[in-house]
């Protein structure tokens, strides 16, 4: 018997929800670390050193990469199946149904933007920090790297676009993951959607503030 996590639509959604939840928790953690760079440069550099090429940071990175991969692969599987279920003949006239968020219908597109941003981010930061350390050379200083990257306005704009996509993805994703595991009802929908908007906005402001802070102090 094949496992319901891949054979059943609700099982596949459960994987989406759990991997999404894991990524949300990670993103909150990452954002919190970044904000330290504004508050204390030494503190930030200490965090960077702490999360170098040691076993716990590497294990964390591996688990994280696995989480992103699962979420990404399932996103494509779900979307392909859904397009097939919808069929080739589309409606001539389509409208936006009342109360339906734009983000909820464009999760894959938003996710693809997130992945592209992620790849750039890995090249910009991870390759120069953890990867070089794995390869045995001296990593770049955390704060210096942020400063030099965001002195370039093009990077600032790209990163902000990336955060906007993440904001949209989370405004739907965060309440949707509760619905998927069944922790929702008519009383809680307005609350969950409110929580989703708050989480998405906190994540956005946290990341964006670091980028903008280092851009403006460089001017």
């Amino acid at each position: 018997m094949s496992c319901f996590l891949s054979s059943s639509s609700l099982g596949r959604k459960l994987v989406m929800s759990l991997s999404g939840c894991f990524l949300v928790l990670f993103i909150l953690f990452h954002m919190t670390m970044n904000v330290v760079a504004i508050i204390s440069e030494d503190g930030y550099n200490a965090i960077c050193e702490f999360l170098g090429a040691n076993w716990y940071a590497l294990l964390g990175t591996a688990i994280l990469a696995f989480g992103v991969l699962v979420h990404f692969v399932y996103a494509f599987i779900l979307t392909i199946q859904n397009r097939r279920a919808r069929g080739n003949v589309r409606y001539e006239i389509t409208v936006k149904e009342k109360g339906v968020d734009w983000a909820s219908k464009n999760m894959l597109v938003l996710g693809i933007i997130i992945v592209l941003g992620l790849l750039l981010h890995l090249v910009n930061f991870w390759a120069k920090m953890q990867l070089v350390e794995i390869l045995g050379t001296e990593p770049a200083s955390g704060v210096e790297l942020i400063r030099s990257t965001f002195s370039c306005p093009v990077y600032v704009v790209i990163y902000l676009v990336w955060f906007v996509a993440l904001w949209f993805h989370l405004t739907h994703g965060v309440w949707s993951m509760f619905q998927t595991v069944g922790w929702a009802n008519d009383t809680w929908y307005p609350r969950l959607k409110c929580i989703a908007n708050i989480v998405a906005t906190i994540v956005f402001l946290g990341f964006a503030s670091v980028v903008l802070y280092f851009f403006f102090i460089n001017l």
Partner: peptide, 10 residues
Amino acid sequence: GFGNCTNTGA
């Protein structure tokens, strides 16, 4: 062959 729900609410 019905699709997977993505909670759009449509």
